[in-house]
Design a protein around this nucleic acid. Sequence first.
DNA 1: TATGAATGAGTGTTCATTCAT
DNA 2: CATGAATGAACACTCATTCAT
Lengths: 241, 241, 241, 241
Amino acid sequence: MGAGKTKRMPRAVREQQMLDAAVSVFGRRGYMAASMDEIAELAGVSKPLVYLYLNSKDDLFSACIGREARALTEAVRAGVRPGLSADGQLWSGLRAFFSHTARHPDAWRMLHLHARTHGERFAAEVAAMRAEIVAFVTQLIAAAARDAHRVPHLPEGEVAGLAEALVGAAESLADWAGATEGVTAKQAAATLMNFAWAGLGDLMTGRPWTPPEEPQPEPEPVPDPAPRAAPSPAPVAQGAG
Amino acid sequence: MGAGKTKRMPRAVREQQMLDAAVSVFGRRGYMAASMDEIAELAGVSKPLVYLYLNSKDDLFSACIGREARALTEAVRAGVRPGLSADGQLWSGLRAFFSHTARHPDAWRMLHLHARTHGERFAAEVAAMRAEIVAFVTQLIAAAARDAHRVPHLPEGEVAGLAEALVGAAESLADWAGATEGVTAKQAAATLMNFAWAGLGDLMTGRPWTPPEEPQPEPEPVPDPAPRAAPSPAPVAQGAG
Amino acid sequence: MGAGKTKRMPRAVREQQMLDAAVSVFGRRGYMAASMDEIAELAGVSKPLVYLYLNSKDDLFSACIGREARALTEAVRAGVRPGLSADGQLWSGLRAFFSHTARHPDAWRMLHLHARTHGERFAAEVAAMRAEIVAFVTQLIAAAARDAHRVPHLPEGEVAGLAEALVGAAESLADWAGATEGVTAKQAAATLMNFAWAGLGDLMTGRPWTPPEEPQPEPEPVPDPAPRAAPSPAPVAQGAG
Amino acid sequence: MGAGKTKRMPRAVREQQMLDAAVSVFGRRGYMAASMDEIAELAGVSKPLVYLYLNSKDDLFSACIGREARALTEAVRAGVRPGLSADGQLWSGLRAFFSHTARHPDAWRMLHLHARTHGERFAAEVAAMRAEIVAFVTQLIAAAARDAHRVPHLPEGEVAGLAEALVGAAESLADWAGATEGVTAKQAAATLMNFAWAGLGDLMTGRPWTPPEEPQPEPEPVPDPAPRAAPSPAPVAQGAG
DNA sequence: TATGAATGAGTGTTCATTCAT
DNA sequence: CATGAATGAACACTCATTCAT
C-alpha cells in the first residue's frame, strides 16, 4: 500500500526513501507518537531494513533533522539576492523561507515543533540551524543600520533581541500560513516586512519606542493560587526588574 | 515518597494537586512522554484516584490546557490598564504576558509546544485561547489606527495578519526569554515594542513598506526533490552588501 | 492453563511464584533462551506484573541466583553434623549437597551451568556462594591434616587446590547423578568419599603421589594446525613449566 | 575491516577459518548470545557464505563441537605414553588434557559449558566425546586394579562412578586452571593425581572408605518448599571439630 | 475517599535466514 | 566463489487502564 514495493534498490536510494517517510511521519505525529512500524510501511520496506541503515529511532530522527535543516538553510541561502540592499535581501530571504516551509510542511513541523521537544541532542541540532539564520538576519539589521548611518551602530544586545524577534515572528507566521488556507508565501513575507521593517527603520533613525513612566513595581496582581506540587526544574526568568 | 501523603483531602484540593503535577510533567516531557505513573507519584496519590477524578490521560491533558489557558488569558486581561492609549495597553498586556510565561514555564511549554502537537482536540483548545488574545490585539491595532485617523482603518485582512505576526513574535520571544538566562519579562516586552510598534505606526500613518518590482514569479530555483544527504556545509550568511 | 490462575495474591507470594517459575525456565533453557513470556505464563501471571515486581530479566535472574545460592548453602550447612570428625562432617555435608541438587535440578543447572555463562555480575554471585563452600571444605581438610598430625600442616596452596578439586568433583558428580537414572544422593556421596578421602589420607600421612622422572619438556605433539582467526581475549595458562 | 579480506580461498581453508571464528565466538558468548553476524565478520566473510558452507547456526555449532571434540580426544590420546604403568598413563593423559584445554580456552568453554546447554543434539555430541575419555579412564582404573591383584577386580558400577568422578574432577580443574592466573597444566595434573590416585590405590588394595553407621534414613530437615527470600546471611563454615 | 493488584496492546530492537546477482 | 539487499518472527520492556477491596 502506498509506495509500490520496487524491490532491490541501492542503499543510497532506499535510505532517502526512508528519510522521506520518516520526515512525514515525524512531522505529522511527533517523535514519540511516531512508530517505526508506520515509517517502515510508508517507506515500503520492512522494519529491520530501517534499523540496518539508520540504527535507531534516535539516529533516524537525527538524520531527518540534519537533512531538513540543511535543506531549509540552503533554500534560504539560494533565495537571497546577494547584490541587493538589506531590505531587499531580507525580503527575498523571507520569501524563500516561507516558500520552503509551505512546500515541506511536515519537515517544518518536525523542525519547529517536534525537534525542540525531545532531548538536548535534537534541540541542539535545530538550534544550530536557527543560529545560522539568526546570524544572517543579525548581519542584515546591522548592515541596514550602517546604511542609515545616522547612528553608528545599534547596541549589540539590542540587535540580538531584534533578530530573535524577527526570526521568531517569521517562524510563527510560517506556522500560521501552514495552518491557514489561502495564505501564500508571498503574503506572509509581505506581512512580516510591513510589520517589522518600518519599525526597524525608526529604530535606526534614532526614534525608538520608549516605555511610559510607571510607579508601581510589578504587574500580575493575580495571586496565582495554584500551589505548585513540586518545583519546576529551572524557572529561568523570575520577573522583570 | 516525595510529596508527603496527606490523606483525605477534599476533592477540589486533590484535583488541583493533580493538575499541578500534570502540568509540570506534561510541560517538561510532552504529552506522549508523560506517564500517568509519574504524574500520580508527583501528585502524591495513587493512579486509580487520578482516573477516578479525571477519567483519562486525554481528559487530564484537556483539563490542564483549560486551566492554564484560562490562567494565561486572565493574567493578560488583568495586566492591561483599561484607561490607557492603545500602545500603553499593549505594553502593559505584553508585560503581563511575558511575566506569566516566565513564572509558569511548564505551563507555557505545555500550551505552546505540546498542546498543538497532539490531535485536533487539544490544538483547538489552545487555538481558542489564542484567538481571544489575537482578537484583543486586533482591537488594539484597530483602535490605534483610528487614533492615528490619518487612514480611516486598515483593511481587515491586513490587520488580522499583523495581529497574528505580533502574537507570534510574542510567543517566540516568550520561548526565547524562557531559554535565555538573564532576559527579564520587561526586556522581552520592550524588545517587542521596539520591534513592532514603530513599524505599525508607520503603517498607520500611510507609509507601508512596499515590495520591490520583480519580474520573475517565484523563487526557489533548487529542484528540491530529495536533496542528497551529503555535501554543502556552506553557511547561510556570507555578508550583507 | 498450567498453574491455575488464583487471582489477587499478596505481593510476596506472587513474587515467590515468579521466582519458582523463573528458576525452572532458566534452569531448563539457560539465560538467553529463557523468555519472559514463558516465565510469566508458567507463573500464571501476565508479563507486566513480572516487570513490576522484578524490574528486568537481569534482575530476575539475579534474584533467582541469590535465592537458590542461599538455599543451597543453607541446605549444606544444615546437613553438616557439627560434632563429628572431619570425614564425618564431609560425608554429611556431601549427602546434603547431593540431596539438595537432586531435589532441585533446575536450580542446580541454573547455578552451575548457566549463571557462570552470562556476565561478570552473575558469575560473581555464584562465585561468592562457591567460595563459601570451598572455604568450608578447606577447613575440613586442614582439620583432618591436624588430626593426622603426622605432618604439621599441608602447604596452603596445596590445600586450596585440593579443596577446589574436591568441590569440582562434587559438582561434576552432581551433574552426573542428575543426568543418570538410578543414582542416589547417597551413592554419589559415597563414590566421592571413596574416590577422594583415602587419597587425601595418604597425602596427610606423608605419602603423596610423585610424578615420574621425565626428560622431555612438553607433551602435545599435535602441531595444532588450526590457524586462529583472531586472538582469544585471554588465554590464561599457556603451558606447564 | 578486521581480518583483511583475502579473496578467493579454496573451500576447505575458508571453512576452517569460519570454524575458528565460530569456536571463538561460541566459546566466549555461548550458543544463544553468539550472532552469525559476529562470526561472519570475525571470519572475514559475508554471512551468506557461512550459510552456503555450513547450512545453519545449528549445523555450524555442531561442526564446531565435532572438530573440537576430536581435537581434544586426539590430543589426549597422543599425549598418553602407551608402554607405561596405569598411573604413568593417567599422568601423561591428564597433562595432555590440561595442556590442551589451557591452549584452547574458547574451545573448552564451548564444549564444557555451552554445548551441554542447548538441546539434546549438542549434549549428545559432547557426551560421546566424554564417553570415550571415561572409557579410557575406566580401562586404566581396571588395569591398575588388576596390577594390584589383591582384589580380582572392582565391581563394574563402582569403577564407572570412580571414572566419572575422576573425569569430573579433571573438568572442574580445567575450568579452575583456566580462570586462575598462574596455575599451569602441570600443576593442575599433579593436584589431581595427588587428590585421586592414592585414594584409588587404597581402594584397590582393599581399604575403601566406609560410611559411618547412621539410623536416620535421609538428611535435609529443612522443609524446603519456597525458602523465603529474606534472612539468613549466616555462612556455611563455622569451623571443624 | 483511596489503593494494591493486575493486564492487553503496543513499542523499539535483534536475529537467523534467504534471494538475486 | 561471493555478496548486497531484504525480511518474518521473535524478544525485552512499557503504558494507559481497570478491578476488587
